[in-house]
Design a protein around this nucleic acid. Structure first.
Lengths: 342, 342
DNA sequence: CTCTGTTCCGGAATCGTTTCCAGTTCCACT
DNA sequence: AGTGGAACTGGAAACGATTCCGGAACAGAG
């Protein structure tokens, strides 16, 4: 069953059928109706492979996601997919694993499918640089900043990480915490890690304090095991800590488990501040005090930015999304309890 | 840059280039080498849309996933994608939301792409029946059973749910629990829910007890909120319960939060048994005692089953995967503590 | 030298669309 | 009635691969 058959059955040419199927003008209502009737009767769907071949570009938008375990992305994926669908487009999802293999595979795929635009969910700018620098189609990076890279095809939309980290650190400092450890990021630091640490240091600085980066920062992968291992290492090195600032909620949960295994209670002995605001943060034990990223906004705006540039071109844009500190039960107020000063 | 350009540069015909690219015989080593050199020099990739058009089938395998929040599927997705890649194929992921809209959209898409096979991760057989009954390509359903449906294109691979529920219930009964509530499934019961409840009832029956389905079973969505709400409803209706058997770890975590909000401790006041064995089960507080599904096996075998039937045809098969009860800290032994008998 | 068979090769048809372009119809207006 | 233009229509040429099929080259046998 092809467009040709439909044309024959409807008594018209293939060009007319194509026009009807694509909602183009220049078709009389009478003809349109007749064609639609035949299409409906046979439940006909045009072959998308042929369509894409002719149109020389894939209407599906590849969405490349960094890892499957960070639940922040699970929510983003769902919303991105929905927004793309609202715009009559499809999301083609790919999960990249840590290794370069996955990125290379995805890059090859992008060459073959010839997409008109790509959406990145997370992932370091460095990885992008390595595998996708040759891509000319417009791209958008969510939860990461591309401003510093200056690619002429990569926009980005990220939470105002410096301000968020400032507020998170201030929240801890205000509650009497001084010995604060930081969990997250990789060595060497990515842009996003740099900005978060900058916010943290500003919070310390504004109170006349300094943050001992070398001792009290521990890089870690953004998953449970990463948080667990990093927290153990950090607490072993700095047993004096009264609070941990983690760069993701999943990491925070791994850290909480590590603290528990070390016989430390959260938040009575050690406080934990999360980052992301995934749904789980409001259900886990204890509930996480965390920085909520606005995934709804990011998904909507990210898709908008991408489609806009796919349609009309223009230079890449760099935007920041608002955030909100959500209080849970994972941070203790040392001024009241008076336990373990430092 | 097309195959024609390559042919021109290599001084041969397009047919020869195509043969080389697809590793077919009937090409002299000399020519093959020359073509490969040109291909490598220009980093040429054949247009996959044209290829698929001619071959009349998409090599990508649609993978339809039920919801983004159930982390069991996150792991499965990752492994399925990897296995498909090992077989030289690509996964095309689609997340279905609860509403019929998503399923209808996915179904339309599957018709358009004309895939040679489809993989379902979770999802009720009922949903399949509604939207995909017309699909003739072989399909495989993971974590769900299709045996009872008798479609001639739908294989399935599921944990031996009856046996798993039997073991889980026995575990609780052995530790002195009698007032056990069940969280999960939907009304009316799906095949998978039926089998799990059957296993549970068998465990009760083997001890001369009966399970009061009407009072002590509460259906719920497989996410945090679903578990939370259902646990509250159930505990309100049956405050005498000493244990909850939930049909997913995520649900269990929602339930644990609900119990906490009701002032009940886990496991001291109420025990919770999970199902799935997601990574989070070993990190959350308290660690979950749960039924581990073998996602590694399911992903590998699921892909095998699908590709096998795509290549060689044959009738659908129905297999079960092994499971393992993993002990955490969410179940109390009433015989020792002697608290709250029932 | 002729014949047969194998190996290698390239032209051309094909897949199912979209889109260009030329042609037809039809209507309103001089 | 004649004309201009808009609205509509359908044939045919792409799009970029795969694959059928016939032909060329060459070897060995008779």
């Amino acid at each position: 069953m092809t467009i040709k058959d439909i044309a024959r059955l409807a008594g018209c040419g293939v060009a007319t059928v194509s026009r009807v199927l694509n909602g183009q003008p220049d078709v009389s209502p009478r003809t349109r109706e007749r064609v639609l009737a035949v299409v409906a009767e046979h439940d006909f769907r045009p072959n998308s492979n042929a369509r894409r071949l002719k149109q020389r570009a894939d209407t599906a938008v590849p969405v490349l996601v960094q890892g499957t375990q960070n639940m922040l992305f699970a929510g983003l994926v769902e919303q991105v997919q929905a927004h793309l669908r609202d715009h009559g487009r499809q999301a083609a999802l790919y999960y990249l694993d840590e290794d370069a293999d996955g990125a290379a595979f995805a890059a090859r795929l992008c060459r073959e499918r010839r997409p008109a635009g790509i959406l990145f969910l997370g992932g370091t700018a460095r990885a992008f640089q390595r595998s996708f620098a040759a891509v000319t189609a417009p791209c958008v990076l969510l939860t990461g900043s591309a401003r510093e890279l200056g690619f002429d095809n990569l926009s980005s939309l990220t939470t105002d990480d410096e301000a968020a980290a400032f507020q998170a650190a201030s929240y801890l400092l205000d509650r009497g915490h001084r010995a604060i450890g930081v969990l997250g990021g990789s060595r060497p630091l990515t842009q996003i890690g740099l900005r978060r640490l900058a916010g943290l240091e500003r919070a310390f600085g504004s109170r006349g304090l300094t943050f001992d980066l070398d001792r009290r920062w521990e890089p870690c992968r953004y998953d449970l095991e990463g948080g667990y291992e990093a927290a153990r290492r950090l607490m072993e090195r700095c047993p004096e800590l009264t609070a941990l600032f983690t760069m993701s909620d999943v990491t925070a949960m791994g850290a909480i488990r590590a603290l528990g295994d070390l016989g430390l209670r959260v938040p009575e002995d050690v406080s934990v501040m999360g980052y992301d605001g995934i749904p789980m943060a409001r259900y886990c034990v204890p509930r996480l005090t965390t920085i909520c990223q606005d995934t709804g906004l990011m998904a909507r705006r990210g898709v908008e930015l991408l489609l806009e540039r796919m349609d009309r071109g223009g230079p890449p844009v760099y935007e920041t999304a608002p955030f909100r500190l959500q209080e849970g039960e994972s941070v203790a107020d040392l001024r009241q309890s008076g336990k373990r000063g430092s």
